[in-house]
Write a protein that binds this DNA or RNA. Structure first.
Length: 273
DNA sequence: ATCAGCACCTGTTGGC
DNA sequence: TGCCAACAGGTGCTGA
């Protein structure tokens, strides 16, 4: 479900609600929700939350002392802050509750997820390094020369390259299609074949689309909701994603759907070369 | 390195 | 109306 704009919206919503709170307990309701590669989560009990921010597609709950909890919502994960439920009816309070992080003020951070794909992982030190993900696409240090060196010699389709979080972290299936539309580049183009102008357009398009989507609090195509349970609005402004058969907003050509890396991929055959 | 295929899960939807 | 295959915003593993 959530990509960079949705995760950014959630992190921004969560931050003022939980900052400076101390963690008083960690209660998993589904065994595999904790990714043990970072070690057991119980060790954060007693720690204070410094802030909440986005790292790639992770919601990062940063703790005093340099550690943090990295939460990945995958397809259907949701975060909310609730009144701490009695242990025996926790799962009734929030449907599909998978993990409750109790706070010292009688509230809990609730991580729920219909599909059980979401994970929470303890991280020590720089989260991007620990999580093995690349630079943020909104980071201005990612400029054309840097993109050029990253794409050099790559024969994989540019859209597939964009989805690989080790390169740039945060872009998912919606915004990859959208950014490529705004850049006028076919999703199937070999990454290394982009010209300088195309790389410049791609960088500008990624940032434009991601910033616009953040302004609109993300895209709620199906079930994405923010921390307050509200839908985003950017789904109404999508240019190609999910619009197969409908006409391109720019040139009226019907939008096409193909499959790349087993993912639905949308583009305008006229506007994208 | 890279890539297809599948696994992980459950719910919704579209076609017959 | 009813059934069921296909599909869904993501990643991670295996084997070629």
């Amino acid at each position: 479900m959530p990509e960079l704009p949705e995760v950014e919206t959630i992190a921004r919503g969560l931050h003022p609600r939980v900052r400076r709170r101390r963690i008083s307990g960690v209660e998993p309701h589904f065994e595999r929700v904790v990714d043990l590669r970072g070690g057991a989560l119980q060790s954060v009990v007693g720690d204070r939350i410094a802030r909440v921010r986005r790292v790639g597609k992770f919601v990062f709950v940063e703790l005093d002392g340099g550690r943090g909890i990295a939460i990945h919502l995958r397809m259907t994960g949701r975060l909310s802050v609730i009144k701490t439920p009695a242990t025996n009816d926790a799962s009734k309070t929030v449907p599909y509750l998978r993990l409750a992080i109790h706070l010292d003020d009688g509230r809990s951070l609730a991580f729920s997820d219909v599909r059980k794909f979401g994970r929470a992982r303890l991280v020590d030190g720089d989260p991007a390094t620990a999580l093995g993900i690349g630079a943020d696409p909104l980071d201005e240090k990612v400029d054309e020369p840097r993109l050029r060196s990253m794409l050099h010699g790559k024969r994989t389709p540019i859209k597939v390259w964009l989805l690989d979080q080790r390169h740039l972290a945060g872009i998912g299936n919606i915004y990859a299609s959208e950014a490529l539309f705004h850049a006028g580049i076919r999703p199937s183009r070999r990454a290394g074949s982009l010209t300088r102008k195309e790389r410049e357009r791609l960088l500008a398009a990624m940032r434009f689309v991601l910033r616009k989507a953040i302004q609109h609090r993300g895209s709620s195509i199906d079930d994405y909701l923010d921390v307050e349970g509200k839908r985003g609005r950017f789904q109404n402004l999508l240019a190609v994603y999910g619009r197969v058969g409908k006409v391109c907003r720019r040139c009226r050509t019907p939008v096409r759907r193909t499959v790349l890396a087993q993912r639905g991929t949308f583009y305008c055959p006229t506007c994208q070369k």
